[in-house]
Amino acid sequence: MITFFLVLLQSGNEYNGGAVVAMVGKDCVAIASDKRFGLELLTLATDFEKIFKMNDKCYIGLAGLATDVQTLSEELKLKCDLYKLREEREITPKKFAHLVSSTLYDHRWGPYFCEPCIAGLDENNKPFICSTDLIGCINFAKDFVVCGTTARELYGICESFWEPDLGPEELFEVISQSLLNAFDRDSKSGWGAVVHIITPEKIITRHLKTRQD
């Protein structure tokens, strides 16, 4: 049992695989993930989305150990809904980021093995993205955030493709191309992708067909 947890500490984030990326555009944000669900190199399902809606202007993507992705997404949704009931307003992405951070830090010595990416628009419709590590250290970024087994590939390609003030459609193209080309070089991610573009008026959700290998 102890060895099992030691193994998890080393590879918890790599057991199921996955890729999540979020980007800032002009008055919009985009968040995208792959759809693979697997056990190490065995692929079990290709409809496992890792992005969860907290409210109309705030999404979270969780990459890492699938069980913790499920547990954490449910816990966070619960906390968001309770916040809404108590405060009678929607939680803003920045407050949500701190909520995620403290939730993760609550489990400092037995962490959830997942890294979140948060994307949303605040009360003035200003774009907000951030990511945290598995114990809740927040990284506020002005451009893009990535996480999952494909993180390195995503860093490289996003750094090249991203530019400031992209409109929703341009941002969609940039985030899709970044994600697709990045996870094609990662054996643990891929098998379809989903992209959400959050604009003040509406949310555009698109499912991408990708190569199945």
Binding site: R152, E153, Y155, G156, I157, S160, Q177, N181, R185
Partner: peptide
């Protein structure tokens, strides 16, 4: 050391993938 960061970019720009 930077090969993971570079390769997807080359795939896209020179390999014309996706």
């Amino acid at each position: 050391s930077g090969n993971e960061l570079l390769q997807p970019f080359l795939d896209s720009q020179i390999g014309l993938k996706n």
